[in-house]
């Protein structure tokens, strides 16, 4: 039996008249890469916001490794081992890329009371390797503000991975990336996740990416999980094709 890492039960959240989640149950299993697909505005990002404590659901609960985290702050949830990458990269624009990663590493290892220079932290080599892994090593000494969108995306994901999380939640990891590069980036990313045995959930619009990289797919529509299954099963489902893929 596989181990459940993240478990959502009966999540309900409304924004005015819009019901983003109306009794959502979802389990994420250890080691898998779960894609969440669905029409725009269905509530996929809202799920990531609830799972990381940014939003509180009106009903329901989220458990991470058996612990109820529904009322936790994003900071507390991060410290438990859930890292997040954003649809719009959230970077420290005035820091260089390597400095940003070192801030993450300093947080992970509790290096807050040291007067050592950030640049001289022992995690520097590890962070350079992480940049190598996501293919952004050459950007290490650049300020985040000068990077093009595609690189920012990679740095954003690298900042999440720098925390050595047990679970990473990614919001459209390949949006803003040139379509020719999507597979190359996902190849690198999934390899990096597998190398560190990190479970992942990613919201995705590109069905080719889902097909190729997801172990399971959850279809989120009208505030509910309509179906969960392997990409082969789900993407062949006529209801999914008409609702989500829109052919």
């Amino acid at each position: 039996m596989t181990k459940v890492v993240l478990s959502a039960r009966g999540l309900v959240i409304r924004f005015g008249g819009v019901v983003a989640a109306d009794g959502v149950d979802l389990d994420v299993q250890a080691g898998e890469h779960l894609a969440i697909i669905g029409p725009n505005g269905a509530g996929k990002t809202t799920f990531l916001n609830i799972a990381t404590g940014y939003l509180k659901p009106q009903a329901g609960s989220v458990e991470f490794l058996g612990q109820d985290i529904t009322a936790h702050s994003p900071r507390a949830i991060t410290r438990l081992g859930i890292a997040r990458a954003f649809q719009i990269p959230q970077l420290f624009l005035e820091h260089t890329v390597i400095e940003s990663l070192l801030i993450a590493a300093a947080s992970r290892n509790g290096r807050l009371a040291t007067l050592r220079s950030l640049e001289d932290l022992p995690e520097r080599e590890e962070m350079m390797q992480l940049l190598e892994l996501v293919g952004a090593r050459d950007a290490a000494e650049h300020k985040a503000v000068v990077l093009p969108e595609g690189r920012r995306k990679l740095v954003d994901i690298a900042m999440a991975l720098a925390l050595k999380p047990k679970l990473v939640l990614m919001d459209e990891p390949t949006s803003g990336v040139a379509s020719a590069e999507k597979f190359a980036i996902m190849d690198v990313l999934v390899a990096a996740l597998n190398a560190q045995a990190v479970t992942s959930v990613f919201v995705e619009h590109d069905m080719d990416v889902v097909q190729r990289y997801a172990d399971r797919v959850a279809v989120w529509s009208s505030g509910k999980i309509q179906t969960v299954g392997t990409p082969r099963e789900v993407l062949a489902d006529p209801a999914v094709i008409s609702q989500v893929i829109g052919i």
Partner: peptide
């Protein structure tokens, strides 16, 4: 100068550019 170059000092500048991310790195 030492303080501003240390991790805590660097995080001060991160408050200016992106406090949300700072919290999502587990930092208060």
């Amino acid at each position: 100068q030492r303080y501003l170059e240390s991790p805590l000092g660097s995080m001060l500048r991160a408050i200016k550019s992106n406090e949300t991310r700072l919290e999502y790195l587990g930092i208060s």
